[in-house]
């Protein structure tokens, strides 16, 4: 996938550049962009240190577990095929809590462990179950309460109010999450009706 994206972008850029006579600009981009990537990394680096540090404190203080307990009424309703006190359900709530706090580094290993726990509890199905689809959809939607990367890059680009996007981000991510979860149920029903 990434090979096609990377190769495709460069190939298309060079071919279109040659046809439209914009080779000087293309050369300039080739010279300048790597430096821009370094600048971007520098901007992100401090932010990543700060939040990874704070999240380590949050984890040590048991905040993810607390959040997970708060979320359990919701997760119980979403995952109808799983035992309420099973290992899978516990891992799912922890993964969701980590995602909400923006703990990407912790969320992915927890999520993988949760998938394997669901699989085991549901006896290794060949086809994805509705609970698996629900869980993966929760992870492809953004649950992060504070989108720090977007806000930081806005600040670096000279925004007067980098955080002004928060209410809009919440509205948009909540809507998209609801639609995703509904779509899992809906499309699942359609597939079953088609006998698949």
């Amino acid at each position: 996938m990434m090979n096609a994206v990377f190769g495709g972008m460069l190939l298309m850029g060079v071919v279109v550049g040659a046809l439209s006579g914009r080779m000087p600009e293309v050369s300039e981009a080739l010279l300048n962009q790597p430096g821009q990537a370094v600048e971007l990394t520098l901007v992100l680096l401090g932010n990543m240190c700060l939040w990874s540090g704070l999240m380590k404190v949050a984890e040590a203080a048991g905040l993810s577990q607390m959040l997970a307990r708060l979320l359990s009424p919701v997760t119980k309703r979403l995952f109808r095929g799983l035992r309420h006190k099973g290992r899978a359900m516990g891992l799912i709530t922890l993964n969701v809590a980590a995602n909400m706090l923006g703990l990407g580094n912790a969320a992915t290993p927890l999520g993988i462990a949760a998938m394997q726990a669901i699989e085991k509890e549901q006896r290794y199905p060949e086809d994805a179950t509705e609970d698996m689809c629900m869980f993966v959809t929760l992870n492809t939607a953004s649950l992060q309460i504070i989108p720090t990367t977007a806000a930081l890059l806005r600040a670096a680009a000279g925004s007067k109010a980098p955080m002004e996007i928060l209410p809009a981000v919440w509205l948009s991510s909540a809507t998209s999450l609801m639609v995703g979860l509904l779509a899992v149920r809906l499309y699942g029903g359609v597939l079953r009706r088609m006998g698949r």
């Binding site: 994206v5 990377f6 972008m9 460069l10 298309m12 850029g13 060079v14 071919v15 279109v16 550049g17 439209s20 914009r22 600009e25 293309v26 300039e28 981009a29 080739l30 300048n32 962009q33 790597p34 821009q36 990537a37 370094v38 971007l40």
Partner: peptide, 15 residues
């Protein structure tokens, strides 16, 4: 680096 070069070239070429 890889992707910013890709995006930069794509934009500079007009694609």
């Amino acid at each position: 680096v890889a992707l910013m070069v890709g995006v930069g070239v794509l934009r500079a070429s007009g694609a």
